[in-house]
Design a protein around this nucleic acid. Structure first.
Lengths: 267, 267
DNA sequence: CACGAATCGATCATATACAATCAGATGCGA
DNA sequence: TCGCATCTGATTGTATATGATCGATTCGTG
């Protein structure tokens, strides 16, 4: 991974979480501690992050809105191969002509690529997903009303009366911050709210979670396991990690990253 | 593989991923490291990519993502100079901090360019306008819920309960198909419906109509002159054409196209 | 205040990327 | 076909980045 890539990734994470530890970055960047420290120091010198003991902090206070890049390009993102592999498999769960709901997120954004040829009714709260769908597919796209939150890139209405309530999806595709025996966990209250709204508009909940999510915890439980019907993850997941989901009656699909790589090269 | 081919491939990849390493290109181009470096350096000299250690980066700043599949661009549009002149003048009607509504259309799309530095609450039913605002300004953006109609590029809900009803704009900016003594005329029933919804959410209606619209008629009257407070047109309009509006108590502003051209060149 | 643990900065050996150079390959016009 | 110009790939020495190590500092805890 290039220095510049690490820097972007660090900045992205700092923006997202407003604070990151060296330890977090260790796994995510696959670089040594020394390098990560150097990266953080460099970024701190440039004033792009604030150096704090144990990690880095956002320069900007969290509440202050700022212009953030839409994830139009997956490359700025982490776990890209995993997410693509998951997306490819998840897309196979879709029947032509049905209506689906796609919750915003980088994992679900990867799904769009595989929806080009479908003829679907799609509701999504993600502006970038809608934009890409609009540009690359012929599906019918519906947006909920609301304000565009730049940080999360989702459309969310502060009000009750929402177009969303007139939509019914056969399936909901969603990512998550963490996924474990408690269910779907998120770290951002805004995302919780958005996701909760969507959960009411479908029966079939499909969670797309790369294997790192299975070890991730947070404070907010969006919904318990009983609400989830299918989980799509990648082969980085240990079998014992998946047991709890299977025991809860959830269909678990494991996507092979290496196999997806080959398919990708063919295309 | 020809030099040109490599260059375009590199540009394509950089565009897609926003960062590529020499190593990546090594496999993809099947050329030697030296050649790839030379290619990158050449492209960097031309300003087409940014040279970074280990590879190349997109010139576009990370925080200004490009707009994928912008369904229409001003360049494909007619009366561009007129529309830009009108937009520049219309933008001056806006007070910092206020909340405005922008109806979809190519004329109002031109307005976005002049809204970059404002700090506004903006509701728009136009997907492209929202996308461009999101990418180039810091304004707060709200979308009505609904389906995206590709032809008109607007978001319109077939239902009654709409986020739109919780919004109130100090001003509504709208284009039109035709503008005459009957009021605002449109040719597309869908646009009529969208516009009608917006009209209910404001008092102050500002119509942006290049002079060709003053001679255009259609079958559907969206609203009469009594609802319009201001008309912004260009200096292609004959004074006698504007009399009827002034007589109705409407403020008429005429934008000078040639003067706008000069301002544009300065920028 | 004292202790251990975590974090940090500095240092150094190694790995990687770089520009410069040159020889061979390729394309092009005479 | 020859000769020239250009492009390409390999090589080399240099600059830079990286990761491991280690002592110093800071932090949390008792």
């Amino acid at each position: 991974m290039l220095e510049r890539e690490r820097h972007s990734l660090i900045l992205k994470l700092v923006e997202e979480r407003s604070i990151v530890s060296v330890g977090d970055l260790l796994d995510l960047l696959g670089a040594s501690e020394a390098t990560i420290r150097r990266d953080i120091n460099t970024l701190a010198e440039r004033g792009e992050v604030k150096r704090i003991r144990g990690g880095a902090e956002a320069v900007r206070p969290r509440h202050q809105p700022h212009l953030v890049g839409m994830p139009f390009s997956l490359s700025q993102d982490i776990s890209v191969p995993q997410k693509r592999a998951i997306a490819r498999v998840a897309a196979e769960l879709i029947t032509p002509g049905e209506s689906i709901i796609i919750n915003g997120g980088t994992t679900t954004f990867a799904l769009v690529e595989f929806l080009a040829d479908h003829d679907l009714d799609i509701l999504t709260n993600s502006f970038p997903i809608a934009a890409k769908l609009l540009a690359t597919s012929r599906n019918r796209i519906t947006l909920p009303g609301g304000t565009i939150f730049r940080e999360q890139n989702i459309v969310l209405s502060p009000f009750d009366n929402d177009t969303i309530d007139n939509f019914w999806g056969n399936k909901l595709f969603t990512g998550c911050y963490g996924l474990n025996r408690f269910g779907i966990m998120e770290a951002d209250p805004l995302i919780v709210q958005a996701q909760t709204k969507l959960l009411k508009r479908t029966e079939d909940v499909i969670v797309m979670a790369d294997s790192s999510k299975l070890r991730q915890k947070s404070a907010m439980i969006v919904t318990g396991l009983e609400r989830i019907s299918t989980i799509v993850t990648d082969d980085g997941a240990k079998p014992e990690e998946l047991e709890v989901f299977k025991a809860a009656g959830i269909k678990v699909i494991v996507a092979s990253v290496s196999q997806d790589d080959e398919l990708q090269k063919l295309a």
